Amino acid sequence: MKGLVTIALLVMSNTFMTLAWYGHLKFAEWKWFNKLGFISIIFISWGIALFEYMFQVPANKIGFKGNGGPFTLLQLKVIQELITLVIFAAFTIIVFKTESFRLNHIISFVFIMLAVYFMFKK
């Protein structure tokens, strides 16, 4: 159960992270957003990133083996990276519509899944 909660929290965290890091590139299509200065955009991104941390910190605390969770620190990081890449790919395809999912992307994800597999192999 802790493993599923950890993964769900990591998905939420990475959704906010992707929005904070790359959302402003899409927000630029809004007229009012283009009037904002660089510092304002940074503060908006920080505000969004706050929600990232509200999910990321509990995910790591719940999921870490040292706190009674199912994952080692290295496993947590690899899971987080996999989730980050999946969320980012979906965000890019759905929100920006400037990328298409191609064979090289599928091959990349296969190798990432292999990395996860080997990270968990005893």
Rank of each mutant, 00 (worst) to 15 (best):
I106G: 09
F33D: 14
L85R: 12
G37P: 05
I83S: 01
M54T: 04
I39G: 00
M12R: 00
Y53M: 09
M54F: 14
A28T: 07
L76S: 07
L82P: 00
T84W: 06
A49Y: 10
I41T: 06
I62C: 05
I62Y: 07
N67Q: 06
K65F: 08
M17W: 09
I62H: 06
L25P: 00
Q56G: 01
G23F: 04
A28F: 08
L50P: 00
T84F: 05
E52N: 15
T84Q: 12
K121W: 10
L103D: 01
G68Y: 00
F88W: 10
E81M: 08
K77W: 08
S108V: 06
A115M: 13
I87E: 07
F101R: 06
F118I: 12
G69Y: 00
S108A: 15
M119W: 02
K65A: 07
V78L: 10
F55Y: 12
M54A: 13
L25E: 13
L85A: 08
I87G: 01
V95W: 09
I41C: 01
F109R: 13
W30N: 07
G3D: 09
Y53F: 14
S40R: 04
M113A: 15
S108Y: 14
Q56T: 00
I87D: 01
S100D: 04
L25A: 08
N34S: 14
I106A: 15
G66C: 03
F109H: 07
S13Y: 01
